[in-house]
């Protein structure tokens, strides 16, 4: 084990997988010479050459399409969309090509494509540089979606995603790059896709969350514990396929649940998870399941207003109070 930031953990995952398999390549804007704006690919070009760490023109559809083609022809590309907001430009390649090819060609084509999507708001980056659009892709059959928080999971899931023969969207939150924690050094260690993790045990309310909101939920749970309210926090880690077994096991214990994410509430992951729970676990619900997310407005540039739009610890606590109010 060693202590690493998310940035370093992602870098280590790419490094290890590129060393392990020469078919692994990295491509995107500024990933090579600059080591990407956030330092995630730092040093890789020097180590593996600009043939494997490819600086692309600034055209998401073009380099995502390149990634799709490379994956279909035997490479294991890791494509980076610098800001989640611009994944819209690549959506045709992702939705109509990457997600469909294995199905349409009867399994004759594999699609070992990873698309890294740094997402999230904070710091006043305004409406076009702040979004979390993971729920859009949750709607698309044929994709896998991961959104880890802890450095160890970032490393373990990126390695798992690279080794997976299906297209995986890898959502990482920009504001969490500096989160530091223990990370296993074992190069064969991976985090399996599709497994959630209970990161805090509790008995009264289940908080289901992922990515940046894991920390927010844990902070809220800690303060609530001081008030005598026991919350269980589940870090989903993978959004598709989603580990409902772990969520429902927790709901069996608590009977009360809120889904917390940074993305806008309407049509977010929370909407889908709550709907699924109503179908699968209606009889376990002792209170209406709640969603906690951003307000349904474009993210403001003004930082005070941005903070008002994003969900925070207080919003999570309010949801817990509401779940326990029996109103």
């Amino acid at each position: 084990m060693s202590r690493k930031t998310v940035r370093e953990a992602l870098n280590a995952a790419l490094d290890e997988e590129m060393r392990r398999d020469e078919h692994v390549i990295v491509m995107g804007c500024d990933v090579g010479l600059k080591g990407n704006p956030f330092g995630v690919t730092l040093g890789l070009a020097k180590k593996y050459g600009l043939d494997r760490v490819i600086d692309t023109p600034i055209s998401e559809p073009a380099f995502t399409g390149m990634g799709v083609g490379a994956a279909a022809t035997g490479m294991r590309p890791v494509v980076e969309i610098m800001f989640c907001d611009w994944v819209t430009l690549a959506s045709d390649q992702i939705i109509n090509m990457a997600a469909k090819m294995r199905y349409m060609f009867g399994g004759k084509v594999e699609m070992p494509l990873v698309i890294r999507v740094p997402m999230g708001a904070g710091g006043g980056q305004a409406a076009q540089h702040s979004q979390s659009l993971e729920a859009w892709f949750n709607h698309i059959p044929g994709l896998k979606i991961v959104a880890p928080y802890y450095p160890a999971d970032c490393k373990g899931l990126l390695k798992a995603a690279i080794r997976d023969d299906n297209p995986v969207l890898f959502f990482e939150n920009k504001r969490c790059y500096s989160v530091k924690d223990e990370v296993p050094d074992d190069e064969d260690w991976i985090t399996p896709i599709g497994k959630a993790r209970v990161v805090r045990e509790g008995s009264q309310v289940t908080l289901v969350t992922y990515s940046s909101m894991v920390k927010v939920c844990l902070d809220a749970a800690q303060e609530l514990a001081d008030e005598g309210i026991s919350c269980e926090v589940i870090d989903l880690r993978t959004l598709l396929p989603l580990d409902y077994e772990t969520v429902i096991a927790s709901l069996e214990k608590t009977g009360r649940i809120a889904v917390v994410h940074e993305a806008a509430t309407r049509g977010g992951m929370g909407s889908d998870i709550v709907a699924e729970l109503c179908e699968r676990a209606f009889d376990l619900l002792d209170a209406p399941p709640l969603r906690v997310g951003a307000l349904n407005v474009p993210l403001p540039y003004n930082e005070s207003m941005e903070a008002a739009v994003l969900p925070d610890k207080e919003n999570v606590k309010e949801a817990v109070y509401r779940l326990l109010s029996n109103d």
Partner: peptide, 23 residues
Amino acid sequence: ISPLAKKIAAENGLDPREIAPEQ
């Protein structure tokens, strides 16, 4: 009545109308 409460009440032959909420 919550779905969970309703289910437990039904399993125990309890009419929800006989149950008072805490408040």
